[in-house]
Design a protein around this nucleic acid. Structure first.
Lengths: 214, 214
DNA sequence: GTCTATACATCGATAGAC
DNA sequence: GTCTATCGATGTATAGAC
């Protein structure tokens, strides 16, 4: 049952965990090999270099994001609904690839300095473009404010969403769906208590959970 | 005019820049020495180890936060005003210590694993406590929503604020004061356009800049 | 596919001349 | 206070036996 791919994937998985915790540059091939249970020299039967392992980790992760964002943009939804779906899609990816998410967030700036990881920079530009397109659509059609720079809003929600991997536990009392709703609600509705608005807010997708006590 | 402290501070400054860009573990003492313009051995006349330099960088940074947060908490303000002041104080610190901010954000999890940096962990707990105190006060007095977990709100605004060092340029068209107002407004009021509220929102401190075009 | 063994570079840190 | 010179450990990567 043990396919050759399993061995390769085990290496990628162990390496990702170390890269995320210690940083790529501070992780040694010996540590990766130790985690897998083999000697460092044996790694080079599967990968031609340490950087090649980094490539593999980030490649799968970025393709995952790209695919899910494309699905969101394919649907015909309002900007507010799309924003919620982008948040949810990001959290699902972060749940599936928590280590890669951390690596990407912590080391993007350094990785893009190296020509080796040029494809990471290109993917990052694509991701930003998707968010900004949704935000700008919302500003244009009047559902989002026009007195906040779209870029400031984008950076804020992006950081809040992607860095949730540092603290959010999907298995805990806050499942991913709930977190996506809460984050979207914070960023669209705000954290201020609403003084029973005379004009009810346009259909929002989140239930009121004030009575659940959690 | 060149005090002995200047040399020491130059080393700290150069090291901080490298630590922030490449990560602490991936930065070598030789690189630090190169940036300063001396040889690596000479560093050890000023510091007893590489970790001691990290200590110095983070120590000044954390003391800076601690001092500014204490000032905010000393004033008698509403939770919403205090939240705005915490955001602003954080951005001022991030502007003064951009490299230390990045190091702290990127490597906190790893640093706290090492007994050497236990004081960093203690400072981190203090910082979180300050934010949560303000948030909980606001929930208690009814100015903040009670259907969002305070911790979820805290993590979101914290990440958005501290990670702004990665992209915000204080010298640009968005000065620090303006960013603090925008971030606070996003997190308290939300990004959704308000349909001319019948009940005007309680005195908020930010001007409407929809006509400035920026 | 993993091992042994090792090449060769670079790491943090030290000792002592200047 | 910086240099020269270097130690011993550790870094990535390779070659060839099994």
């Amino acid at each position: 049952m043990a396919e050759p791919q399993d061995r390769r994937n085990l290496i990628i998985s162990c390496a990702a965990e170390l890269f995320a915790r210690k940083g790529v540059g501070a992780t040694t091939v010996r540590e990766i090999a130790d985690a897998v249970g083999i000697l460092s020299g044996s790694l080079y039967h599967h990968f031609e270099s340490k950087d090649a392992i980094v490539d593999e980790v980030l490649g799968y992760y970025l393709d995952n994001i790209k695919k899910r964002y494309a699905e969101v943009m394919a649907g015909e939804k309002s900007p507010a609904e799309r924003l919620h779906e982008l948040v949810y899609a990001s959290l699902v990816v972060a749940e599936e690839c928590p280590h890669a998410t951390v690596i990407y967030q912590n080391e993007l700036h350094y990785l893009r300095e190296q020509p080796r990881f040029r494809h990471v920079q290109l993917a990052a530009a694509d991701i930003q473009q998707t968010w900004l397109q949704v935000i700008n659509e919302g500003v244009r059609d009047g559902s989002f404010r026009d007195n906040i720079e779209p870029r400031v809003f984008y950076r804020s929600i992006r950081d809040a969403v992607w860095l949730s991997t540092r603290w959010h536990r999907p298995k805990g009392p806050n499942p991913t769906e709930r977190l996506a709703e809460d984050v979207t609600s914070i960023f669209l509705d705000g954290f201020s208590a609403k003084p029973r608005p005379a004009i009810p807010p346009a259909a929002r997708r989140h239930r009121d959970r004030s009575a659940t006590g959690c």
